[in-house]
Design a protein around this nucleic acid. Sequence first.
DNA 1: GCGATAAATTGATCTGCGTCAATGCACGCG
DNA 2: CGCGTGCATTGACGCAGATCAATTTATCGC
Lengths: 252, 252
Amino acid sequence: MRDVPYVRRPITTNPPNSPTARQCHDCGARHIGLCDALSDDDIGFLARVAQSVSMPAGKSFIEEGSPSAYFYDINLGDVRVHKSLPDGRRQITGFMGIGHFLGLSVSGTYAFSAEALNDVQLCRFDRSSLLSVFAEFPAIEAKLLEVAVHEMVIAQEQMLLLGRKTALERVASFIDSWTERHAPLSNRPRSYAPVTFLLPMNRTDLADYLGLTPETVSRSFSQLKRDGLINFNNPQEISVLQPHHIAAMTCG
Amino acid sequence: MRDVPYVRRPITTNPPNSPTARQCHDCGARHIGLCDALSDDDIGFLARVAQSVSMPAGKSFIEEGSPSAYFYDINLGDVRVHKSLPDGRRQITGFMGIGHFLGLSVSGTYAFSAEALNDVQLCRFDRSSLLSVFAEFPAIEAKLLEVAVHEMVIAQEQMLLLGRKTALERVASFIDSWTERHAPLSNRPRSYAPVTFLLPMNRTDLADYLGLTPETVSRSFSQLKRDGLINFNNPQEISVLQPHHIAAMTCG
DNA sequence: GCGATAAATTGATCTGCGTCAATGCACGCG
DNA sequence: CGCGTGCATTGACGCAGATCAATTTATCGC
C-alpha cells in the first residue's frame, strides 16, 4: 500500500481501501477522461489520495442539496444524474459512463443527485484531497476545465432537444448519440453497418431524460421499428439497423 | 499604450485598440467574474493581451460552427446565446450580462452563436493570448473552472425547466431569476418589496429561451398581471409586485 | 416449465400549448 | 399630426403528446 512509486509529498495517510498504483494502471478509466491527462509516473500520486468504492445497481450516492463532500470518477458501470421538483417531477440531465467525473461543486452542496444504473466502481476523492491533486498537478485542473467545457456543449445540445425537438427527433437523437458512444464512426468498418448494444436504463429513465412520458418513448421506438431503422432483441438490447437514417432524423 | 505598469514578459505587440491598465481598472467587469480573480497588479498583464471591442445592438459576433478564434468577456451590455436546427428552430441557451465569459472551445469551432441584445462592449482575447494568460495566471484557469461548474449548474436547472415545467412555471422561473439578478435578496431592504427593471430581450427571444411560443409567453404574463403579481409599464419594463409569490410559482 | 410480478407496449381519450388570424399599441418618419 | 411598420396581445381552433387503461412480454423464483 505504501510503496507507490512516485510520491512527491505526503498528503494524508492512505485510506484502507485505496487503490494501489497497479490498480490505477489497470483501471478501466486509465486512458479515458481525467486520468488520461497524467503520465504513468504521476498516476501513482492519484492512487495515494483516491479511494476505490463500489455501488450496487440502484444505489444513490449523490443527493441533491447535501454537502458536496466527495468528487468521483467512474471506473466501471453507468450512472444516472438528475434534478427533481418538490412534487416528484424529475429531469435526468445525463447518463455517465466510464471516465466521467461527478461532483465538482462551487456552492458546497450538490446541485444534482446520482444513482448507479448497474454495478458501479468509483474512484473517490474528498474535497481536500482534490485540492491537493490540483496543487500537485495543474494539468488535472486544466483537463477538468476542458472536460467541463465539453459537458457544457452537450448540455446546450440537450437544451435544444428539450426546448425544440419533436418526440421522434428526441428519441432518434438519443439512439444516434448512443450508437456513436458504442461504435464511433471512425472505428466502424463500414460507417453504415448495423450496431447492437445494451441500454443500461429503462423507458421511464429515458422519458425523464428526453422530457417525454414512457408511453411516448415506447411509441417512438415502435415507429422506428415499423420503419425498419431499429430492432429490439429485448427491451434492453437495441440493434440500430440504419445508423445513417437515424442520424438524419435527429435534425442536427 | 506601451507603458502598462506590470508586464512580465512580451507576448504579442499591443493591438491598436487594446485597453490600458487604467481601462481595466475602470472596466464594468473589473470585480465581477473572471477578472475578480486577479490582483490590481496582475490586471495590467491582461490589458496587454486583451482587445476592447464594441458591438451594436443586434450584431452577431459568434457564429455556431465557425472557428473559435476568440474568447470574450462582457464589459457592458447583454448578449443572447443560442443554437439552431437546420430548419430554423432556435433554442436560446442563455442571456449573458456583465462579467460573463464566452467562447471557450475544445473542438476548435464554436458550438453556439452569440448576438448583442443592446450596445455591447467586450474584452477580446485570441486563442494564443488566452493560453499565455493561463500560463501566467493559473488563478484565471482555476477561476474559469469554477465559473464553468457554475454554468453547468444553471444549465441543469434550465434542462429541468425545459423538460418538466409548465408554461406558467417557466415564465415565473424566468421572472424570479431576473428579479434576483437585478435585486439580490441580500441587497433588498425588505425581501418582499416590489422590484422594477428592464428586459433587454423581446417576447420571441423569451419564447426561444423557455421552449414556448411568443403567444404562450404573452398569455402567461397576462395571467400573472391579472393575478396582481407583476405589471408592465411597457413591454420591456416589468414590475415584480410580489417577488415571493413569483418565487413560489417556480416550483423549486 | 410455470405462475407471479414488473416493465413495456398498445389503445382510447383528453388537454395544454401551438398554430393561425385578428386586433391593439407604440414609436418613427414624412 | 397621421400613417406605416413591427411587436405584443388576444381570440378561435387543432394537434402532438399526456393521461388513463388494458394487454402483452420479459424476468425470476421455485
